[in-house]
Design a binder for these strands. Sequence first.
RNA 1: GCCGGGAUGGCGAAAUCGGUAGACGCACGAGACUUAAAAUCUUGUGGGGGAAACCCCAUGCGGGUUCGAGUCCCGCUCCCGGCACCA
Length: 839
Amino acid sequence: MTTPSTSRDRAADEPAVYDASSIEQKWQSRWQEEGTNSPDLEHGESPYYQLMMFPYPSAEGLHIGNLYAFTGNDIQGRFRRQQGHTVFEPIGFDAFGIHSENFALKVGVHPLELIPRNIANFRRQLSAAGLMVDWSRELSTTDPAYYKWTQWIFLKLYERGLAYKKGAAVNWCPSCKTVLANEQVIAGACERCGTPVEQRFLDQWFFRITDYAERLLKNLDWIDWSDSTKTAQRNWIGRSEGAEIVFGKRETGNGKGESGDPFPVSHLPFPAVPVFTTRPDTVFGATYLVLAPEHPLVEQLTTAEQRAEVDAYRERTARQDLVSRKITEKEKTGVFTGATATNPATGEQVPVWIADYVLMEYGTGAIMAVPGHDARDFEFATAFGLPIVRVVAADGESPEAPLGEAYTGGGRLVNSGEFSGMTVADGKRAITEWLARRGAADARINFRLHDWCISRQRYWGPPIPVIYCDACGTVPVPEQDLPVELPYLENFKPDDTGVSPLARDESWYRVLCPRCGGLGRRETDVSDTFLDSAWYFLRYPSVRRGDVPFDDTLTRRWLPVDWYIGGNEHAVLHLLYARFITMVLHDAGLLPFEEPFRKFRAHGMIIRDGAKMSKTKGNVVNPDVYIEQWGADTFRTYLMFLGPYEEGGDFRDSGISGVRRFLERLWRTALEATAGGEPDEAVMRKLHQTIRKVTEDTAALGYNTAIAAMMEYMNTLRAGERTAHRDEVEPLVQLVAPYAPHMAEELWERMHEGLSGVTRQRVLDSGWPVADSALAAEEMIEIAVQVNGKLRARLHLPAGSTQADAERAALADAQVAKFVTGTPKKVIYVPGRLVSIVV
RNA sequence: GCCGGGAUGGCGAAAUCGGUAGACGCACGAGACUUAAAAUCUUGUGGGGGAAACCCCAUGCGGGUUCGAGUCCCGCUCCCGGCACCA
């Protein structure tokens, strides 16, 4: 072995120029050659599944928001790996869906051609960013080997009675002749052509996610997720406790039926109308009823005189799109049906109206209107001259005090018979029980969560694996016949039939019934993209298995996901659906857990120069340009430095240079470091403080402050005329490795050049430095001295100083003495921090 | 309207079991090196007063609790994100 040349000699020979581009290319190809990022999933110790939300591979390429998410995720993964975990950081592409399809239509290229092209571009960009991604287990939702199992999941739900078909309203653009998602309806018009949107009823497949509402809500209490995400899910699930109250049920009864049974038509005009309310305590103030215009009872209730008006109103509502119907600011409209119903509390007859502010899909599709204590009802009652009665009064308020607006606050019941005087809470309970005893009410819990409509009358998605047979009805495609492959359609544009373009390919949809062998017809709708993404994390570890969706052993070993990072824009839909599907598979005995993600954190949004990035503003950051100019290491580190990861940050070009300077200083300092002599004690103290801070902050996503701490340490290292000792620098290279992985590897290699044994070791597998609290401890501490709360002096005392020492030193200080006359009234001591003197 | 999150120097931001406000970085000023520029290095930088030592003011606005408040409480304003006639 030759005499090891020190880095210093080397630095003297050739100038240590930091060439980011060549270093990054070198390490990216090494990682690929050495399989660095493909962990041994069967045997690797201490598995750690670090997951990021997979991207939709758009034609524009990687968005800065994606890269921000991925970098933060990658740093966490690398950090865990250095701490000794076997880290699995997979990637895939969410490439089905309307988004891709619309884009393909726009540019006139088939998605089958377009998507692989986009994915290739994404691969290039993601590699250039230096992500520790396991490319050997990449997946795409559009791959038949993947969506075979998406279809299989549909079958599992179908088997369990959780998939069903029913008619449902959709937005329909009569000009584009297609179904629109709610997001595609802008102010009641089609976002593309501006034509007013109508409602249509189509048969659609639904998943019974509402069966899981209670559980989806309950588990939120214990899963370790961002609070903002949990709150969003809670609101979305929208649990409401209340009662279903029946209006119009005859007290004496006719000997048949429990509460809620609609009376036969012959009983006109008193059919029973069940309503849902969260305020059963206000039933004495219910002065009229309102039904959704499409409520089935409207037909029976409407009197001959009102028929024309009611029909006209219903028709008008039906023409309206689903979005603008739900606009709050809109003026209230409605029509009287001519019928009245009995208020079960007062026994009075109240008029029954229909109005579009009542929605058929929530509760019973009918409400008891309490204009005195509900803002919407108040508005309606005012518009149509309906009676307004006060049944709740705030403490000290007169029961007869007039209501200028709906009073929705608490207080005591008034004008409510024997219940007057009760609090709102007691009244709720008591009145519900009272009505229940008479068969006119039931306590009830309602959710605003609706069943998940998974049907899409589109082309670019996995065909729903169902066959319709005249003899057998709906027949699921047998498992062994999966996948039902999406056929190549030259023309995949949606048309005016309102059914999927797949319905044009007769050779595809004409099949034999798997049950009876007779003539059958495939379902021509495809499933929602959100179904593709509701289970992809289960597939990653088992992506090489063709025979099962997910391997048992691998799943037990790697799932649930240890840490999931993604945007809060998916707080409700994707994250809720993923939880739901996991629960269903758990209930089917296919998964040993019911929550898919142990830990979820939402990253923040990244804006630019104080404004949201958008193509129209022309302030979109193209990662390629920045990586080319500054290098991936600088770009990554800068992205993480601009603000707290969970809050996002403001991207400004001017800030990048500071990060680049920091890395260059590190580069020079490391290569100039000497192995001779001893490290400096004060520097080592700072080093151990830095290790502690970077470790804590990195683990808690405090990337910006972790970077600041490393910069601070770099300033310490470079203070004065000295050359750093390699023991002072090596741990810093390890700390910076998750942030600037290429440079760290290069430095690590150069610093160990000529040394045997460790030469082959990569910084990624070199471990994570451990802070030594003894070495980190300060010898001297600074104590602030306040007099009457104002800072008057700073004392430097030995670390072991007692309260008495500190007080003595404080009072002895000249500056302090100026403000302390006589004996202090009180002295407060905060150990190691301050002395507060009150005079 | 409801639910989250936020407001701190010229700018991005630190600091929240209440305890030295502005770490780190950008930008800017001064200096060193250079024929010069760039790069690099040193140094200064919240506002006001003062020759200085120091003093006063300052974390969106108005109150409060406290020896002490960016942090806690009450009442507002504005910004961002989400949901939105859910009874």
